[in-house]
Simulated scan of single mutants.
Amino acid sequence: MARYRKKPVEIEAVQYGLAEYADNPWEIRGGDVPQWLQDAARDGIVVPEFRSEDYWYLKIQTLEGDMYAAPDDWIIRGVKGELYPCKPDIFRATYEAVSGDD
């Protein structure tokens, strides 16, 4: 069987923070909400949704259907501008910081 390696591509990503019921649902760890995420919220692609665990989640319209970013998940903007959530362990195993960035 042939084997393949993922091509190195640079993506943009932010880590979603823990936002409790009364808090702002747009809690981003280590910084402000990037413009691309603000634009997606304005366009209804990303929508805050309060769930039963007393936390906000972000519902994200992806190419595969609606997915949810939970607290500590990463929100990734892919090479074609598509958005999708990623669990922290998968993010750490798949991505590394680009030199010169945080």
Rank of each mutant, 00 (worst) to 15 (best):
I75E: 00
P8I: 01
P85A: 02
A93M: 09
F50D: 00
V9T: 12
V9S: 05
P8Y: 08
K6I: 06
W74V: 06
M1A: 12
M67I: 07
D54W: 13
A40P: 01
R77T: 04
G65D: 08
E49S: 12
R29C: 10
I11S: 01
P34Y: 03
A69G: 04
Y21C: 09
D39I: 10
L37P: 04
Y84K: 07
A69F: 02
E82A: 06
Y4C: 06
P71R: 10
P88Q: 11
S52Y: 15
D89Y: 11
I76A: 06
Y4T: 05
A69I: 05
P25C: 10
V33W: 01
E82L: 03
W74E: 09
L18Q: 09
L58V: 02
M1K: 11
G81M: 10
E82S: 13
Y16C: 00
T62R: 08
R51M: 12
K87E: 13
F50R: 12
A69T: 08
L18A: 14
A40C: 07
Y95H: 13
F91V: 06
W36R: 05
V79T: 15
F91Q: 06
I11A: 00
P71K: 11
L83W: 00
I75A: 00
P8G: 00
E12K: 09
P8C: 00
V47M: 12
P85M: 01
E49M: 15
W74T: 03
D101F: 09
A69Y: 01
A97H: 07
Y95S: 00
Q38K: 15
I76L: 11
Y95T: 02
P71V: 10
D102H: 12
I11R: 04
I90A: 15
L58R: 04
Y68L: 11
A40R: 04
D39T: 15
E12I: 07
K7C: 00
V98G: 00
K80C: 09
D32N: 14
L18T: 14
D32I: 00
A2H: 15
A19N: 00
D72H: 13
G31I: 05
L83M: 07
K7W: 01
A19W: 00
Y21W: 08
S99D: 12
A70E: 14
D54I: 06
A13T: 03
E20N: 05
W74N: 07
E20I: 08
Y16L: 04
T94D: 06
L63V: 14
F50N: 04
Y55A: 13
S52Q: 14
P8W: 03
P48Y: 06
E12Y: 04
I60C: 07
G65W: 08
Y57T: 11
A40W: 04
E64K: 14
A69E: 02
D66F: 09
L83S: 05
E82K: 01
D43A: 14
L37S: 02
M1E: 12
G30L: 09
P88K: 11
P88A: 12
T62V: 13
I28R: 10
